[in-house]
C-alpha cells in the first residue's frame, strides 16, 4: 500500500448527509474484476445527465472543483454496502482525503486499506470549511498525518484524531497481510486450542 504522510490539495464540498456507497459507485460498475479504473464512474448517477453530459447542478462538476483531492461532506458519509469499489473510485478520481463529521464504519475502514485518509471533525468545523470553500475559490487545505493537523494558509488549524495503529500503517504504507503472516506461530497455536463443533 502507498504511504500517506502529508497532503496539500484543492478542496471540493459536497454538503449532503448520508452519501451512500450506491451513489459513490452505482452497482452497474461493480462488475469489473480489477481495483483500478473506477474513477470515471464515481457518483455516476449524480454526475451525468441522461445524454452522458455532466450535470451542471452536481457539486463536483463545478469548474472550481476540477482537480480537487480533498472532499468535505456531511454526516454518515459512505453508508451502505461494504463495496471497496467506493474508496477505489474516490481515489482513482483523485481524492486522497475525505473530511466529514461522521463516516460509516466499513467505508471508513476500507479507506485506510487504500492509502486514503478519512478524517472526522465536528459539524461546526465542517461547516466552517464549507463556508471557506464557498467564499474562496481555489481554497486549499494541508493535511499532516504525522502532526495530526489540518491547516489552511489563513491560520486555520484543526487537530484530528486517528487510531495509532491506523496512523502507523498509513504513514509507513504497511502491508497488513504481510504483517499478520509473520504472526503465523501465534495463529497456529490458536488453531490448536480452537474448539470446533462440526
Amino acid at each position: 500500500m502507498e504511504a500517506f504522510v502529508k497532503h496539500t490539495g484543492l478542496v471540493a464540498a459536497l454538503n449532503r448527509v448520508n452519501v451512500d456507497t450506491d451513489q459513490i459507485i452505482p452497482k452497474q460498475f461493480l462488475k469489473r474484476i480489477e481495483r483500478t479504473g473506477f474513477g470515471q464512474f464515481l457518483f455516476f448517477d449524480w454526475r451525468f445527465l441522461e445524454d452522458g453530459s455532466p450535470d451542471p447542478a452536481f457539486e463536483l462538476n463545478r469548474t472550481e472543483f476540477a482537480g480537487a483531492s480533498i472532499l468535505v461532506a456531511g454526516d454518515n458519509f459512505g453508508c451502505g454496502s461494504s463495496r471497496e469499489h467506493a474508496p477505489w473510485a474516490l481515489l482513482d478520481y483523485g481524492f486522497k482525503v475525505i473530511i466529514a463529521p461522521s463516516f460509516a464504519d466499513i467505508f471508513f475502514n476500507n479507506c485506510f486499506k487504500n492509502g486514503m485518509l478519512p478524517i472526522k471533525v465536528s459539524q461546526t468545523l465542517v461547516d466552517q470549511i464549507f463556508e471557506k470553500v464557498a467564499a474562496q475559490p481555489g481554497y486549499q487545505l494541508a493535511v499532516d498525518l504525522e502532526a495530526q493537523v489540518i491547516r489552511d494558509d489563513s491560520g486555520l488549524e484543526i487537530p484530528f484524531e486517528v487510531e495509532p495503529f491506523r496512523r502507523e500503517s498509513l504513514l509507513r504504507g504497511l502491508d497488513e497481510i504481510g504483517l499478520t503472516l509473520k504472526k503465523d506461530a501465534a495463529i497456529r497455536d490458536y488453531e490448536e486450542r480452537r474448539e470446533v463443533f462440526r
Binding site: R35, S81, S82, I106, N109, N110, E176, I177
Partner: peptide, 13 residues
Amino acid sequence: GIGTSEVEHVLAT
C-alpha cells in the same frame, strides 16, 4: 461485513 482488502486478509491468514 468487510471490504475486499480484508477479504484478502482473511483468505491469506
